[in-house]
Design a binder for these strands. Sequence first.
DNA 1: TTCGTCATGTAATGGGTTACATGATTAC
DNA 2: GTAATCATGTAACCCATTACATGACGAA
Lengths: 206, 206
Amino acid sequence: MAARKGAGVLELAVLGLLHESPMHGYELRKRLNVLLGMFRAFSYGSLYPCLKQLLADGLIVEDRPEEPGTPLALQSRRSKIVYKLTADGKERLQRLLTEAGPASWEDEGFGVHFAFFSHTRADVRLRILEGRRSRLEERLESVRAALARTRERVDSYTLELQHHGLESVEREVRWLNELIGRERAEQEQQARRYENKQDKPRDRGR
Amino acid sequence: MAARKGAGVLELAVLGLLHESPMHGYELRKRLNVLLGMFRAFSYGSLYPCLKQLLADGLIVEDRPEEPGTPLALQSRRSKIVYKLTADGKERLQRLLTEAGPASWEDEGFGVHFAFFSHTRADVRLRILEGRRSRLEERLESVRAALARTRERVDSYTLELQHHGLESVEREVRWLNELIGRERAEQEQQARRYENKQDKPRDRGR
DNA sequence: TTCGTCATGTAATGGGTTACATGATTAC
DNA sequence: GTAATCATGTAACCCATTACATGACGAA
C-alpha cells in the first residue's frame, strides 16, 4: 500500500527491462544506456538505490547464485545478483504503463514510456503520442509568438539557436504525426477485423 | 573569494541576460524561457534564490525604483526590483564564458553557452562547438556499437526510438559541422586581415 | 469588484550525480 | 601478477522543481 510517489523514470525503466528478462544491476545499466542512450544516462549511484527500494517494496526479488553446497567460508563472497520481477512487480509495471499522465510525455519520461510501447495498450499508446505532440506544439507556439514579438535586436547566434531548436521540435512533431497515423490505421484495421467476426455486418463504413 | 561552485547554468544565463540589459526577476524568467524555450524552462523557485545568491556575492545589485520623495508610509510597498551587473559580475560572466569545460558541451549547458556566443572569444567558441561535436559522436558510436551487438530480438518500437534518436543526433552533428566550418572560415579571414596589416607578408599560404 | 497577469518570494522535496570504496573475474 | 573490466555499493551534495503564500495593478 502506501502510495509511494515512485522513483520517477528509473523505476519504470528497471521494471520494464526486468520484465523482458532477469538481470543484474551492472547489465541493467548498460542496457538502459543503450535503450535510452540518445536521451539520458543513468549512473550506478541512482540505479542501485532504486533496486534496493524496489526490493524493499517486494516488486523484485534477488537471486544470488550461491551453490547450495558451498562451504560457509565462501558464503559471503560478493557475486552477481540477478533480479527478477515478482507478481507485484508485474502488476506495478502494468499500472505504470497504463497511467498515461503528463509525466509520460514530458522530455524525461517520454522516451522511457515509448521504449515499452510493445507492452502498452494501443489506446494508451495513442494518448501518449498525442499528449507528447500537443506538448511540443504548445512549446512551438509559445516560442514562435515570443520570437515574433522580439524579432528586433537579436544577435545571430541566438537566432541560430532558436532556429535549430524550432526545427528539431518540428521534426519530432512530424515523426509523431507519422506514428500516430500508423497507430490509428492499425486500430481501424483491428476494429474492422472485429466487426467482421460478428455476423450481420450492419452499418459498414463508419 | 571562496571558490563557490556556482549555481550551474542558471547563473550563467542570468548574468548573460543582465549583461545585455538590467531587468527584474519576472521578466528575466520570461526572456530565459524564450531564449532556451526548446531545451529547458526555469521556474521562479530556482530563479529567485539564484538572484539572492548573486546579490549576496556582489555580482549584481538591486535597484528598487523608490522615488526619493516618497513618504515613509509607502516606502515598504513591494514593487519591481531591477537587477544589474556589477563590475565583479561582469568579470565573473567573462570568466564563465571563457572557461569552456565539459559543462559547456553537455546537454544542459551547451544551449546556454551557445546563446551567449556573441560575447564569447572566437577560439572559445570553436572549442565549445568541437567539444559538443565529439561528445555527440562518442554517443553515436557507443549506441551504434551496442545496436550492432544486440541487433537480434529488439521490438519495433525500441528500434523506432533508437532510429529517431540516432537521426536527431546525426542532424545536430551536421549542424555543428556547418557552424564549425563558418567559424573556421571567419577565423582564417581574420588572420589574413591581420597578416595584411603587417608589412612584409612573408610565408603566405601556410 | 473581481479576475487575470504581473511580481516576489519560501519550504519541502526530489531525483539524480560525483566521488569514493571495495572486491571479483578475465586477458595478457 | 597486473591491468582492465566487471560488479556492487554508499555518502555527500546539487540543482532545480512543486506547491504554496503574498501582494500590486490594470481591465472588464
